[in-house]
């Protein structure tokens, strides 16, 4: 059903019909798959990169000028690329790794390349929020740098890291929708193929609902966990 020949109300009504949602089960699965896998990759590499930045920055625990500046440059370059450009750029990379340049896994590479640098910056700013005094105390007790990171900095900044990760996951979700245009499947694929190319706006609407629900759930879970931690620690 299209907005071109039906009223908005009719399209909205049609967007809740069972046959539309039946066709969405598999795409939702694909979107969830892409989101979960990409988010895990973003989480792991974003944290590692963020720790590297905080460690090597001029007043970090292990100042290393050249590596810090190089990492910063690479991150800034990757972050300055629009998501769509990143997807196109990663086509040859995906071909190299998976032997084909389209499909779900190919898009995960693009999503990771785009979101890791973003989450790394969020991690960096979260980690820098820790009071200098706590690090000082940890040092005065005789902690190694590794102990300071794993036993003090990460646990102390956990609520911020979780909130930042929520933002990253939501970006990943929106990017999976975009990646659908490039053969990644999922909700974005449906939205483009039916909603855009065939003017089936009822299907487009259904896709939008799902995206909204996914984002709401993600944000809700993120808030819930970080608030729970803050309450446990008596910090709110």
């Amino acid at each position: 059903m299209s907005l071109l020949d039906s009223s908005l109300w009719e399209v909205i009504k049609a967007s809740f019909s069972p046959e539309i949602w039946k066709d969405l089960v598999a795409p939702v699965g694909e979107t969830l798959y892409m989101t979960v896998i990409s988010s895990i990759i973003v989480l792991i590499f974003g944290i590692i990169l963020g720790i590297f930045l905080t460690l090597t920055c001029p007043d970090g625990l292990l100042p290393l000028k050249a590596p810090y500046i190089t990492a910063g440059w690479i991150i800034n370059i990757l972050r300055s690329l629009p998501q769509m450009v990143m997807i196109i750029l990663m086509i040859p990379v995906a071909r190299l790794i998976f032997g084909k340049s389209y499909g779900t896994n190919a898009c995960i590479i693009a999503i990771a390349a785009s979101c890791i640098p973003m989450y790394a910056r969020i991690v960096e700013s979260s980690l820098l929020e820790i009071g200098k005094g706590k690090i000082e105390a940890a040092k005065s007790i005789g902690s190694t740098n590794f102990q300071i990171i794993t036993k003090v900095i990460l646990p102390e900044t956990l609520p911020g890291l979780i909130r930042g990760f929520t933002v990253a996951v939501i970006t990943v979700i929106s990017m999976t929708a975009l990646a659908g245009m490039f053969g990644a499947g999922g909700i974005g694929d449906i939205a483009v193929r039916f909603g855009y190319q065939r003017f089936q706006h009822d299907r487009l609407f259904a896709c939008v609902y799902i995206l909204i629900i996914l984002v709401q759930i993600t944000q809700g879970i993120g808030n819930l966990i970080s608030n729970k931690i803050l309450r446990t620690r008596n910090l709110v």
Partner: peptide, 19 residues
């Protein structure tokens, strides 16, 4: 690091670990 473990330090702002 070993020697620091033999020197305790107390701070004005306590610097406790909130976690």
């Amino acid at each position: 690091l070993q020697e620091r473990r033999k020197i305790g330090m107390v701070f004005q702002n306590f610097n406790l670990f909130d976690s």
